[in-house]
């Protein structure tokens, strides 16, 4: 019986399967994606003090920086930052429990909550700082748990978590397509953040299919940036600075 899992192939040419393009020129930093992500993925809110210690559980955050000084000061375009779903992810090799593994089927970085023992090595090794750790069993007073999404595991204390590219939506759409005996079409579903974005700054889809919308956008804009690409992480998210 074939029980061998094929080895991970690393090459510069390798592209992931799912990817995002983010147009920073139109991102207004309105936080709709952050709220949508929290609602979709059962993120805990941590309260003022823990949030102040940098322990908030945002899977996506909008970075902004200041350039110059008054009056020539400028805020850099909003930069939604979430797990970049690296093709060669720095978080993966450091996990002693194999909780941070690469999905060969979906080409995503997985976080397997039931394997995670909370060493936090992955978060330390993540150059994008997009992983968040459950420092406590954060309380959701009744009846708030009624809104929990049953498709996503509710994490407990001591577990690392991060953006999954809404893998539950990927699975659901794939399952639906399969049940109807067809292939998944581009744009049939999207992630919670892309779905909410009022400016349509986030687009999600297959980056390995040249005719998909994300691939077209990458070609059209022509000057996309992948963050910290020089580290060899092969990120799946492309940013357009625009302007």
């Amino acid at each position: 019986m074939n029980s061998k899992i094929p080895e991970i192939k690393l090459s510069e040419e390798q592209t992931g399967k799912w990817g995002m393009v983010i147009d920073q020129d139109i991102c207004t930093g309105c936080q709709a994606c952050v709220a949508a992500c929290a609602m979709e993925n059962n993120l805990s809110f941590v309260g003022e003090v823990d949030a102040g210690y940098g322990r908030s559980m945002h899977w996506i955050r909008i970075e902004r920086f200041w350039e110059g000084e008054y009056p020539e000061v400028k805020m850099t375009p909003g930069q939604p930052m979430m797990c970049q779903q690296c093709g060669s992810a720095p978080c993966e090799p450091v996990c002693p429990a194999f909780a941070t593994v690469h999905s060969q089927a979906e080409q995503l970085n997985l976080q397997v909550y039931n394997r995670c023992v909370g060493t936090r090595y992955c978060a330390n090794n993540c150059p994008y700082q997009v992983r968040s750790f459950n420092w406590r069993d954060y309380v959701r007073p009744e009846p708030l748990p009624n809104q929990l999404n049953p498709d996503v595991t509710v994490r407990r204390m001591g577990v690392m978590e991060k953006c999954t590219f809404c893998i539950q939506r990927i699975h659901k759409a794939e399952d639906k397509a399969k049940s109807e005996g067809r292939e998944l079409t581009d744009g049939e579903f999207t992630t919670a953040c892309a779905q909410a974005c009022p400016a349509n700054a986030i687009t999600f889809g297959r980056i390995d299919q040249p005719e998909s919308l994300v691939s077209q956008l990458i070609r059209k804009h022509g000057h996309g940036v992948k963050h910290l690409e020089e580290l060899g992480t092969l990120p799946s998210v492309t940013y357009f600075k625009g302007g």
């Binding site: 019986m1 074939n2 029980s3 899992i5 094929p6 593994v101 999905s103 060969q104 089927a105 979906e106 995503l108 997985l110 397997v112 909550y113 039931n114 394997r115 996503v152 595991t153 999954t164 893998i167 539950q168 699975h171």
Partner: peptide, 23 residues
Amino acid sequence: HRKAAGEDEAKLLKLADCGTCHY
């Protein structure tokens, strides 16, 4: 899952993937 995949490597990748059940 392994039995179901048989010799089909692509199917095995899918059926033995952590992300198939855990997310």
